[in-house]
Amino acid sequence: MVPIKSQFEQSCNYLALKELGVNRSEDLKVGKLKSWLYSNDIVDISFKDETDLLIEMVLNT
């Protein structure tokens, strides 16, 4: 993950993914890109499905 510079939302996404353990960099230097491409780091992220709860909240508002 490489955030677009000067974009607040990108900076927020960068920090959130950092907390989840996702590989990230602030630039696209060749060495970092090669390291990422050849790494076997896989982050298993499982989010709880709260679709029904969200729909219920929207309908009750």
Rank of each mutant, 00 (worst) to 15 (best):
M1F: 04
M1N: 12
M1K: 14
V2F: 05
P3R: 00
P3D: 01
I4P: 03
I4D: 03
K5V: 09
K5S: 12
K5T: 13
K5E: 13
S6W: 10
Q7C: 15
F8I: 15
E9A: 12
E9P: 02
E9T: 14
E9Q: 15
Q10V: 01
S11C: 06
S11F: 07
S11K: 08
S11M: 11
C12Y: 14
C12W: 10
N13S: 11
N13A: 11
Y14G: 00
L15M: 07
A16M: 09
A16Q: 11
A16D: 14
A16T: 07
A16C: 10
L17I: 00
L17Q: 03
L17S: 04
K18E: 11
K18S: 08
E19T: 09
E19K: 10
L20T: 02
L20C: 05
L20K: 03
L20E: 04
L20N: 02
G21Q: 00
G21Y: 00
V22D: 00
V22L: 01
N23Q: 07
N23E: 10
R24E: 04
R24T: 03
R24F: 03
R24A: 03
S25K: 06
S25G: 06
E26C: 06
E26N: 11
E26G: 07
E26A: 05
D27P: 00
D27L: 07
D27G: 03
K29A: 08
K29D: 15
K29E: 15
K29W: 10
K29Q: 11
V30Y: 15
G31Q: 12
G31S: 13
G31D: 15
G31F: 10
K32P: 05
K34F: 14
K34Q: 13
S35Q: 14
S35F: 09
S35Y: 12
W36V: 03
W36R: 01
L37G: 00
L37V: 01
Y38L: 12
Y38E: 08
S39V: 02
S39E: 00
S39D: 01
N40F: 07
N40W: 07
D41P: 02
D41H: 14
D41E: 14
I42F: 10
I42H: 13
I42D: 08
V43W: 00
V43Q: 06
D44R: 13
I45F: 11
I45G: 02
I45H: 07
I45Q: 04
S46V: 14
S46Y: 15
K48A: 12
K48F: 13
D49M: 01
D49S: 01
D49H: 01
E50F: 03
E50A: 09
E50Q: 06
E50C: 05
T51V: 09
D52H: 10
D52V: 10
D52I: 04
L53S: 08
L53Q: 05
L53A: 11
L53G: 01
L53I: 14
L54M: 08
L54S: 03
L54K: 12
I55L: 12
I55T: 06
I55A: 03
I55N: 04
E56I: 09
E56R: 10
E56G: 04
M57Q: 09
M57K: 12
M57E: 10
V58E: 06
V58Q: 04
V58M: 08
L59W: 04
L59V: 02
N60K: 13
N60Q: 11
N60P: 04
T61I: 06
T61K: 13
